[in-house]
C-alpha cells in the first residue's frame, strides 16, 4: 500500500502543478495516471503544438510545458504510478480514502484530488462483432510486451503512427506481420512511412490497402480474421489482431464513485475550494464543472492552488498557516534542496 497526503488522479498539467502547491504546504503527493507518460492531453494529443495562452509564455510547446512542470515539481519528490487506472475508492473510519487501481495496487491518502481531465484515455475499439469475446484471446489494443508476439502471426489495423511503428517493430519479432488500412495513404512521420515501404518491398510486412477487418473467428482463441477488400471478403489466418485506432478519454469508473456528475464532469464548490459532494474528495481542472467553468490550463492551475489550501486544513486540522510568496520565503524541497532569491547586499559607502 502506498501512503501519501494527497493522492492525485491524473498527471495532466493540473495534477502536476498541484504537486508544487502542495509541496509549498509540506504536503506529499502521489500521482496515478492510466497513460504511460505524464502530461495528460498535452502529451497524448498535441505534444508538438504551441500553446499561446499560458501567462508569461508568449508561446510554449505543449511537450515543453509538461517538461517544465516536471522540473518545477521535482524537489517535492512526487510518487508516480503510471499505466494504471483508478478504479474504486473506499472511505476509511479514520476519514482517509483507499483508492485501488485496475491492477490491484492500493493507495491511502487523507485527501483525493481528481485531476482526471476528460477522463482516462482508452483505446478506440473498432465495431466488429464479438470483438469483446476475443479481447485477451488474440485481440490486443496495446502492446506492452512485444515478446508475446515472437514467432506468431500478427495483423495490425490502423493508419497512423502507432500502426506504422509497431508494424516496423514487430516485423523483427513476429513470424508474419500484416498491416491493414482502409486506404493507401498513411498519416505518420515520413521516416515511419518510408520504413514500412522498405519492409513491404523486402517482403517482411504484408499490406492490405484498402482493406477493413470485418470479422473475427476462432473457438477458444483468435484463429483468423475476415477482411473486406473492395467488397470481397478474404479470410486471413492469424494469432493476433491489434487494432490501433488511437485513444479516446472516458470518465470511466470515477463516474460510479457517488460524486455528483453534470455534463460528464464532476460538480464542485467553486466559491470555496473545488471540493465535491464527498468531503475530502476534490475535482480540479478539466474534470470539474461549475457555473462559468472554462476548460483551460491556467484555470486548472488556479483550482489546484485553492484545493491545496483546503487539503492542508483537512490534513492538519487547526494548525495555523499563512500563504507565503515563493520570492520572499524561497522553496524547501523534500529532497533537501533549497531555492531562494539572492539576498540584497548591505554595505556602507565610506
Amino acid at each position: 500500500m502506498i501512503k501519501t497526503d494527497i493522492l492525485i488522479i491524473g498527471a495532466g498539467p493540473t495534477g502536476l502543478f498541484a504537486v508544487f502547491e502542495a509541496g509549498l504546504l509540506k504536503l506529499k503527493c502521489h500521482i496515478l495516471d492510466s497513460l504511460p507518460q505524464p502530461g495528460g492531453q498535452l502529451s497524448e494529443l498535441y505534444p508538438k503544438k504551441p500553446i499561446y495562452d499560458i501567462p508569461g509564455f508568449p508561446e510554449v510547446l505543449a511537450g515543453d510545458l509538461v517538461n517544465n512542470l516536471m522540473e518545477q515539481i521535482k524537489q517535492f519528490e512526487p510518487g508516480f504510478t503510471l499505466g494504471e487506472r483508478a478504479e474504486t475508492i473506499e472511505k476509511q473510519e479514520d476519514g482517509s480514502f483507499i483508492v485501488t487501481s485496475n491492477k490491484g495496487k492500493k493507495f491511502q491518502a487523507s485527501v483525493v484530488a481528481i485531476a482526471g481531465g476528460l477522463g482516462s484515455f482508452e483505446p478506440r475499439k473498432p465495431l466488429i462483432e464479438d470483438i469483446e469475446f476475443y479481447e485477451n484471446k488474440g485481440v490486443k489494443y496495446f502492446i506492452k510486451n512485444p515478446e508475446k508476439f515472437r514467432n506468431k502471426r500478427v495483423v495490425i489495423a490502423g493508419g497512423g503512427d502507432s500502426a506504422l511503428d509497431w508494424s516496423v517493430f514487430l516485423s523483427n519479432v513476429a513470424s508474419e506481420v500484416t498491416l491493414i488500412h482502409r486506404r493507401n495513404e498513411f498519416r505518420g512521420a515520413l521516416d515511419s512511412v518510408e520504413k514500412v515501404q522498405e519492409l513491404k518491398n523486402a517482403g517482411k510486412i504484408k499490406m492490405i490497402t484498402p482493406g477493413e477487418v470485418v470479422g473475427l473467428n476462432g473457438a477458444e482463441h483468435l484463429e483468423s480474421i475476415d477482411v473486406d477488400i473492395n467488397g470481397a471478403h478474404r479470410n486471413i489466418p492469424t494469432d493476433y489482431f491489434i487494432p490501433l485506432f488511437g485513444l479516446t478519454p472516458k470518465l470511466g469508473p470515477i463516474a460510479n464513485w457517488g460524486l455528483e456528475i453534470e455534463r460528464n464532469a464532476i460538480k464542485v464548490n467553486n466559491a470555496l475550494d473545488y471540493q465535491t459532494n464527498i468531503p475530502g474528495i476534490f475535482a480540479i481542472g478539466d474534470v470539474n464543472t461549475y457555473p462559468g467553468k472554462l476548460k483551460l490550463i491556467l484555470c486548472g492551475f488556479h483550482e489546484a492552488t485553492l484545493m491545496c489550501q483546503a487539503a492542508y486544513q483537512i490534513i492538519n486540522p487547526g494548525k495555523k498557516y499563512l500563504m507565503k510568496y515563493t520570492t520572499v520565503s524561497g522553496i524547501d524541497g523534500f529532497d533537501g534542496t533549497r531555492k531562494e532569491a539572492p539576498k540584497a547586499v548591505v554595505k556602507a559607502i565610506d
Partner: peptide
C-alpha cells in the same frame, strides 16, 4: 451533444468525435 462526447481533440481532425 453532451460535453466530453464531441470536440475531444479540440478540432485537430484527430478524434472523429
Amino acid at each position: 451533444a453532451p460535453e466530453g462526447t464531441i470536440g475531444l481533440c479540440g478540432g485537430m481532425a484527430m478524434c472523429a468525435s
